[in-house]
Simulated assay, not measured.
Amino acid sequence: MPATTTPAPSLRLAEITPANVDAALGVKVREDQNAFVAPVERSLAEAYASRATAWPRLVMDGDEAVGFVVANFAPDEEEPDFRCGIWRLNIAGDAQGRGYGRFAVGAVAAEARVRGNRRLTVMWVPGGGGPEGFYLGAGFRPTGRVMGGQVVGEMVLDR
């Protein structure tokens, strides 16, 4: 596994637009990770279908798209685990281990705080080679619930 380095100050999240949608579609995780996360194409389709609450963004390092994240902010959602959460996080296979995923989680958490949320959730498919270690290292803790075969994790957001 490559050494983790501190992300450069040129990191930002960018709204998905017609000008950068091809860059978003070009974000591909490693082949062995495809069993754990849906491709960006599916995530964008789901975000479009849920555009009132979905928040899809490209993770940019300067002019290079290195990842994709989609969050959901639905304060009126009946199920508390779906009110504020990360739906998907895809970091390009050749860009992993450089802090981009942690940056994306932190940026979503910051957006959640701005929107008045105090809890951020994520769900992951358990299994060897899956994202559980990443999410635990990023500050999520399992809630003890499993939905659709996925572990529900939560992060309590400070003010």
Rank of each mutant, 00 (worst) to 15 (best):
N72M: 05
V59N: 04
P18S: 11
L157A: 00
A35D: 15
A14V: 10
Y100E: 00
R57F: 06
V152M: 09
G130K: 00
D158V: 07
V125I: 13
T121E: 07
Y135G: 00
A49K: 15
D32V: 00
R118E: 12
V151L: 04
V152Y: 08
L25H: 07
D32R: 01
N117I: 11
G153Y: 02
A54R: 09
R12K: 05
R145Y: 11
N34P: 09
P56W: 01
N72G: 07
F82L: 07
R88H: 14
V27C: 05
T143I: 07
L120T: 13
P18V: 10
D32N: 02
R57D: 04
L120C: 14
L136W: 00
S43F: 07
A138I: 08
P126V: 09
R118D: 14
P2M: 09
V69Y: 05
V69S: 00
W124T: 03
V70Q: 07
D94G: 11
M123K: 14
T143F: 03
Q33W: 04
P2A: 11
G128N: 07
R141S: 13
C84M: 03
E154H: 04
A52V: 06
V70N: 08
R145F: 11
G127L: 00
R119A: 08
E111M: 01
A24Y: 08
P80F: 04
A112Y: 02
F73E: 04
N20M: 14
D61K: 12
E41F: 12
P75T: 02
L44D: 06
G130A: 02
R51L: 04
G139T: 02
G129I: 07
E77C: 13
E64T: 15
A47W: 08
G130T: 01
R51P: 06
M123I: 10
V108P: 00
G26E: 08
A74T: 06
E31R: 10
R30V: 11
R159K: 15
L157G: 05
G62D: 12
V66L: 01
E46V: 14
Y48W: 13
A138C: 08
R12Y: 04
A104C: 06
R145S: 13
R30H: 13
R83S: 03
R42N: 13
T5C: 11
G144R: 00
V146R: 09
E79D: 15
E64P: 11
E78W: 12
E31V: 11
D22V: 15
T6L: 11
V114H: 02
P142D: 01
N20S: 15
G129A: 10
A14D: 10
P56I: 02
R42H: 13
E78V: 14
G130E: 01
G85M: 01
G106R: 06
V59H: 05
N20I: 11
N117C: 12
R119F: 04
V105T: 00
V21Y: 14
V108R: 02
F103I: 03
D94V: 09
L157I: 01
A3I: 12
P80W: 02
A110K: 09
